[in-house]
Design a protein around this nucleic acid. Structure first.
Length: 333
DNA sequence: CTTCCGTA
DNA sequence: TACGGAAGG
């Protein structure tokens, strides 16, 4: 998923307190929904579901995380993907293949009673489908949280909105929004700060990456950062086999991007992907407004249709309502 | 993931 | 209050 720039970005990220982050956050909806669907499961991999068997893991995730963000002074806007570029098709096909295999491996692990393996494979089989997207958008609407339909990649739209100043930062676990020119990316934007890794619980803090600082630190331009990504591999092309971010950085700094492509990838014309990162399809047709939650509507949806405990739902809604009342009408609505 | 509850 | 583990739907 995304571009593997971690190795050259590690030294340029600043960890910070959730309380230090204020303002409007453009959230990569697909990334958030995928995380919820893959992680919010029982130990054997079964996702949370209502009595009808409809998955609810993503709705739990949105409800509690949104309530916490708003309480902390972060106003979220969720950005949904539109039509992917044609050159992403191979990657999308591969992911579907991986999910299908994981789904089968999940059943096999259950059959032999390997619970840990079952959870791992179930996580890998998670899919953000039309049902997930529709119910997520319905819930956001009832919560009074805006969302934007991107014409193409959500991270590109988020970057565009951050560049214009409509939002203060983009939120995703992937680094792609930096390639699309987002001035600020925030990763690990969670409230609990706890994450299970191989059975252990570790604490993770939000981390902020400022594009200008990153480019300055690496000594490259954004165009060159894109070249590094093209060599390393993106969602749109696998890149050069055996070349990671550090090697790619060296090559690009030495001005060897073109020659490396000519030598190692003679059939690859990077022009269209480079152009896509530099000027992706985006829209200015959006209106960001936050409103008080439709309490009855949320309870009707989550408790009425999806079997959530009314007490828990109301507890989360309280955080949203309190904040909406605290703000002057001007600031919040 | 986040909440909630038991334990120290 | 702090932490670990179970539950949530």
């Amino acid at each position: 998923m995304g571009v593997a720039l971690r190795d050259i970005i590690a030294d340029c990220k600043e960890t910070l307190d959730l309380d230090a982050l204020k303002g409007v956050a453009a959230i990569d909806a697909h990334n958030a929904l995928y995380q919820f669907l893959s992680i919010i499961r029982q130990p054997d991999g079964t996702p949370l579901m209502n009595a009808e068997g409809q998955v609810t893991s993503h709705l739990t995730g949105i409800l509690f995380r949104t309530a916490n963000f708003v309480e902390k002074g972060i106003k979220p806007v969720y950005i949904f993907d539109g039509t992917p570029p044609t050159f992403k098709q191979e990657t999308l096909d591969q992911r579907r293949e991986v999910r299908t295999r994981a789904g089968n491996a999940w059943k096999e692990a259950l059959a032999v009673g390997d619970i840990a393996e079952a959870y791992k494979q179930a996580s890998a089989s998670a899919r953000v489908d039309a049902y997930v997207i529709e119910t997520a958008q319905e819930l956001l609407g009832l919560l009074g949280i805006p969302w934007v339909q991107a014409p193409s990649e959500g991270e590109a739209q988020a970057a565009h909105m951050a560049g214009k100043g409509s939002v203060q930062f983009a939120v995703s676990q992937d680094y792609d929004s930096l390639l699309f020119g987002s001035p600020v990316l925030v990763r690990n934007l969670t409230v609990s700060g706890r994450r299970r890794v191989r059975g252990r619980t570790i604490t993770v803090s939000p981390e902020r990456i400022v594009l200008a600082n990153l480019l300055d630190y690496l000594g490259v331009s954004r165009e060159e950062l894109i070249e590094i990504a093209l060599l390393t591999g993106t969602d749109y092309h696998p890149g050069v086999r055996g070349v990671g971010a550090k090697t790619a950085l060296k090559l690009v700094r030495n001005g060897e991007f073109e020659s490396t492509v000519a030598e190692k990838l003679p059939d690859f014309d990077p022009a269209s992907i480079r152009e896509f990162f530099l000027a992706p399809p985006v829209t200015d047709d959006y209106n960001l407004s936050w409103s008080a939650p439709d309490t009855d509507g949320v309870v009707a949806m989550l408790s009425g249709r999806f079997d959530f405990s009314p007490e828990r739902v109301e507890g989360a809604l309280e955080k949203l309502s309190v904040k909406a009342k605290q703000q002057t009408l001007d600031q919040w609505f």
